[in-house]
Nucleic acid binder design. Structure first.
Lengths: 339, 339
DNA sequence: TTTCGGCATGTTCACGGTCACACACGCCGG
DNA sequence: CCGGCGTGTGTGACCGTGAACATGCCGAAA
């Protein structure tokens, strides 16, 4: 009977050591690129590693270093294009830096599910947190649970610049609003996102700022929930009065719903009513008419997000903050108002 | 100097034990719901746990049990509604069962990125794998990397029933096709998804089966890439000849692109050409006209997926396989052909 | 009464890495 | 000629948890 190389159990650093004729510590040094290893020793160890298909045990490493190398994402409405794109980009960037990503999706954004999601991530020992959710409540909860990890939210409030990316949502919203005003609109509604989403708030603020800067009288924004269904129903409601010529929707889905309602009412876009969206989802170019909107680079957002987090974790990581300014994409849903 | 309760380091099971006046193993038993613990001892331990805000160390537990309680998701095009919904549902179901979810999104689906993604997940010690990607290639790669974990793919090929959910894509596609035929269409194109996606293949097969069952002559399906852009360009191409009265698109986005191309050509839907999609994304009801499509319950899919995986991992988990049959949703894009 | 089995709990060890320290060797400067 | 230092390597402890085994006690069966 020969001494089988530990059948049934994955090879450990000590198995590698034995076969390479070195100590387990030497193997560890090879794995961690320790400088003082003789090249031939290193090669021998690497050969054995390849040979045995040795894979380091993450749990063991995490235990002793007390570093999980995991980033958590708390996300609401992750089925939407924007969040989903950012998540994908975050995951990719994290992976490139040797981090893992674990997600907790919350369906409703009540305090309870937020707490559940955060607790779940915390139990995993995440080293950093990305929040794509109603952020106001999340931060409160974070404090309550005394979870203490670096975190980043995808949008800037202005009040917490260290933990947020300066995607200039306000500028984007102002651009959208200005576009409508420049077309000659004076009665413009804003269909905003949920109140406790910071990006919704920022876009709303941009809208209001531009309106007042241009001396156009404003009505109170309508608070929506990001869905096309909501846009549709809000549109039906608004059309019973029809005291406007344009609507700025806080995302493309709600814009789509609005368009549906407007057509249902027998009106034409943009002849009767102009619509502008926000995000530039890939489908927006194929709506009828193709949607004028504001393009956001969600992927870039995700990437910077990780860079920001890793800046806290690994001082080596490149720090490239800076403002991403969304870009107006004029298509077919905006035009001069009819009189 | 008093003996401070280990400032700086998170409390461990032993800290709890010391304060509760028991051994660390007793604490461990409380945590793992071991039956023979005196209720009062248990309570005392639980009190101390709550008091110290003790959180079990996942890495240590994973190390000793050699169970990571992590499910990996390999996903391509996770920004699309379908995959994103399933991912969210998988995550939620896994969380409910005490599992974590780690994702690897791959942008391109070449062998290299698939291998990278899988290696990344494998390095994490995942216990199960969900594949939402071009599955044919993934399974080959899985074997090549000699990664041996239970896996589930979101769609059934028929040939691998243990590792797939029986969402009856074929039946769904047949229903869609039959709907068109019943409306009187005899020249029907199929705009399929990418060839190596099993769901694309299944829908294509359903289309072909129904066409031949009803004795309608068939042309070769066009292989697309799921995007609205592709649908648009394919539509323009097809309209140069215009030897058809209906198109069955393998997903709603491509259907949207087709609709755009058709309208660009000055034609009307469904008067001139009928369109049917697949998935029923939330926006589909608000397209113009609202899209007739086949509804898939992505969330249910995700949930069953986890149940299936956990069936392999935890014999206790409820096993509810069974076929989910997609459902036809008739809206405004299909009608009788004009002659 | 004695033995035995089960309950409640404690003791020790193992998991697979990393870290602190020790050690052997060769080289260089005082 | 010897001590110190840098290089390459080995030894043992330790991270936090759970499993195996041990222990003491109590009640039921022999």
């Amino acid at each position: 009977m020969t001494v089988e190389p530990q059948r049934g159990r994955a090879p450990s650093i000590r198995d590698v050591a034995r076969l390479a004729g070195v100590s387990h510590q030497t193997v560890s040094r090879v794995l961690n690129h320790h400088p003082s290893i003789r090249p031939e020793t290193k090669q021998r160890v690497l050969d054995v590693i390849a040979d045995m298909q040795y894979k380091p045990n993450r749990a063991a490493r995490a235990l002793v270093t007390s570093r999980s190398r995991t980033i958590g994402i708390l996300s609401a409405s992750s089925t939407q294009y924007g969040p989903a794109s950012s998540i994908a980009a975050i995951e990719e960037a994290a992976r490139a830096s040797g981090y893992w990503v674990s997600t907790a999706n919350i369906e409703s954004s009540d305090a309870r599910s937020i707490a559940d999601g955060l607790a779940h991530l915390a139990a995993q020992g995440i080293e950093g947190l990305v929040v794509i959710a109603p952020q106001v409540r999340v931060f409160d909860t974070l404090a309550q649970l005394s979870i203490d990890v670096p975190y980043v939210s995808l949008q800037s409030t202005g009040r917490d610049p260290d933990h947020a990316l300066s995607v200039d949502q306000i500028a984007g919203a102002r651009t959208a609003t200005r576009h409508l005003i420049e077309q000659g609109h004076r009665s413009i509604y804003h269909l905003a996102g949920p109140q406790d989403w910071i990006e919704a708030e920022a876009r709303m603020r941009g809208f209001l700022e531009e309106m007042s800067a241009q001396d156009v009288p404003t009505t109170a924004p309508i608070l929506g929930d990001w869905t096309a269904d909501f846009g549709y129903h809000a549109g039906r409601e608004l059309l019973t009065v029809r005291d406007f010529t344009a609507i700025f929707a806080s995302n493309d889905q709600m814009a789509l719903g609005l368009m549906h309602a407007i057509r249902d009412a027998g009106l034409e876009i943009p002849r009767d009513i102009s619509i502008i969206g926000f995000d530039d989802i890939p489908e927006a170019a194929h709506f009828w008419p193709p949607l004028t909107t504001v393009r956001q680079d969600f992927a870039e957002l995700g990437r910077r997000c990780v860079a920001l987090l890793l800046g806290d974790l690994d001082p080596a990581a490149p720090d490239y903050r800076g403002t991403i300014t969304p870009e107006l994409v004029v298509r077919g849903t905006t035009g001069a108002p009819a009189f």
